[in-house]
Design a protein around this nucleic acid. Structure first.
Lengths: 124, 124
DNA sequence: TACGACGCTAACTATTCGTAAGTACCAACC
DNA sequence: GGTTGGTACTTACGAATAGTTAGCGTCGTA
């Protein structure tokens, strides 16, 4: 039987893939592609703050991992479509679950931050 | 009604929290704490590859976000226990779900990488 | 004849990260 | 009693990583 991965082993390949999928830009790209196919420039606009360099780099990593499918449409000007593979869809659903949870619980999280900062301010 | 967060807005506080929770070390720490309370040095050993500096930094960010609880035990030598808050448990469960999925599908992901590399090697 | 859209890539710079050392406290050992 | 070791950090510095800017090649529009 095949040995499974272990993200807590620093030499396990799963650690690298986890870094791609949970990285700042990788996670946002996967979450966005769950809404449907996007072109490069669309992702650039919708994932606010990403640079062209990082977006290209991120997409290449996700494509290599088999999470994202890349398709060139030979039109003028050239278009490149990115979409989730079946594998990528499963990963993206889990990431989206986390993001949605964070968005829904933002008020709790912000309250915690305020309480922490207030505690720190006292003990100066 | 309260406005919810949006991780795709670069100025939204949820983006910062998402970065802590999905960051390389933050995600691994949360996942590990789902197994139970850990001391600093235990985490350092179990989260292979993390430096003391990054572990301390990561734990402080997660504590401020209200995801991790920190408790000092005044023994000799001093011990510090880290555990998940109820909020942190919910986040950690979602992260763990992603990690488990990656570990379980590692063979698919590696196969995709091999196929990608082979395709690239041809077109040299 | 500019100019901009498009999907990158390369060079350069700013930021972050990892490594190694230091801190302070005490217990146990030689 | 001097050294070593364990604990939880913090600090300084070099290395790696990320962001910024500029450029490419083609074509439609102004």
């Amino acid at each position: 039987m095949a040995t499974n991965g272990d993200v807590y082993d620093r030499n396990c390949p799963s650690r690298v893939i986890a870094n791609h999928a949970t990285g700042q830009w990788g996670s946002l790209v996967l979450g966005k592609l769950l809404d449907g196919t996007r072109r490069f420039s669309e992702l650039r606009r919708e994932v606010a703050g990403v640079s062209e360099k990082m977006l290209a780099q991120t997409l290449q990593a996700l494509e290599r991992d088999g999470l994202v499918h890349r398709e060139v449409r030979p039109v003028i000007p050239p278009h490149v479509d990115y979409s989730l593979t079946p594998l990528g869809t499963q990963a993206a659903e889990r990431i989206r679950g986390l993001f949605t949870w964070i968005e829904d619980n933002l008020h709790h999280l912000k309250a915690a931050q305020d309480a922490y900062d207030a505690r720190r301010a006292e003990n100066v």
